[in-house]
C-alpha cells in the first residue's frame, strides 16, 4: 500500500497546463512537509510534474502509472 497523501487532486481528463496549474494552487493548501497526490491522464504530465518539482524546489516523491492514469505525489518542501 502506498501511504495516503494529505490532499488528493483529481486532474484526470485535463490537459496541459491545467494539471500543473491546479496542482500549484492545491499545493498552497498543503502544509510544509505534507504531500499532494495528483491523478492525471495527460501523457505530457509526466514531464510536466518532473519539471514542476525541479523548478519549484519540491520533491516528486512518486511518479507512477496504472493503466491510463498517472499518479504523482509531491512532497511540499517549502
Amino acid at each position: 500500500m502506498t501511504p495516503m497523501a494529505n490532499v488528493t487532486l483529481d486532474a484526470k481528463g485535463l490537459n496541459c497546463p491545467l494539471p500543473i496549474l491546479k496542482a500549484k494552487k492545491a499545493l498552497k493548501d498543503v502544509a510544509v512537509g505534507g504531500t499532494l497526490e495528483i491523478l492525471a491522464t495527460d501523457p505530457g504530465s509526466v514531464a510536466d510534474f518532473d519539471g514542476f518539482c525541479r523548478t519549484t524546489g519540491n520533491e516528486l516523491a512518486e511518479s507512477s502509472q496504472d493503466g491510463d492514469v498517472y499518479r504523482f505525489v509531491i512532497k511540499r518542501l517549502k
Binding site: C16, G51, F52, T55
Partner: peptide, 12 residues
C-alpha cells in the same frame, strides 16, 4: 503553449 505556461506557472 507549454513553453509559455512553464515560464508563467513555474519559472522554467
Amino acid at each position: 503553449m507549454g513553453a509559455i505556461s512553464d515560464f508563467v506557472l513555474m519559472g522554467d
